[in-house]
Amino acid sequence: MKRQEGALRLMMEQAQLGDARAYRTLLEQLSSLLRLHLRRKLVQMGRNAANAEDLVQEVLMAVHARRDTYDPSEPFTPWLYAIARYKLIDHLRRSKMAHAEGPLDAAEAMSDGFDHTAVESGIDMEKLLATIPQHSQRVIRDVKLDGRSVAEAAAREGITEAAAKVRIHRGLKAMTVAIGGRLWREDR
């Protein structure tokens, strides 16, 4: 990321001056960066990552329309990711956080990607946990906050590993809806 910053910044400055070739290279690099970033975010939030490409395009269009709001004396990547975040929230609001799709097997992958430090600081993990049923709370606390394995957590609860995964999956899904409702309200 650090190494990219310099190159991206240079291309953006050229693009602001009207250099179409630098701009094309920039957009091509941004689209792959954004694709990875947005896919990860969507998966973290328990959303269908198939929408990532639409979102990539939306962010590229926003970057294009607002390219004059980048101040060349400031770092470029924070500018890009702030736009990406804004458009992601916009997207989530429009799809109204309907429901998470995806098979149950995804629970493992999804929970692996669920990094609680990534949850926006304004959202209190404890309050969020309190919105879901107690039995899910315990398993999520074990696995996500205390770093136990799924097998350990299942043993502590006296349930099978598959059942523990189901609880994690449902709990995270409910928490996602809770975050979504909050983002939606905050941003209106």
Binding site: Q16, A20, R24, L27, R67
Partner: peptide, 12 residues
């Protein structure tokens, strides 16, 4: 987006 790119002024 890159066709006919116009220069922009970041101070706008």
């Amino acid at each position: 987006l890159t066709v006919d790119l116009k220069p922009v002024d970041y101070r706008r």
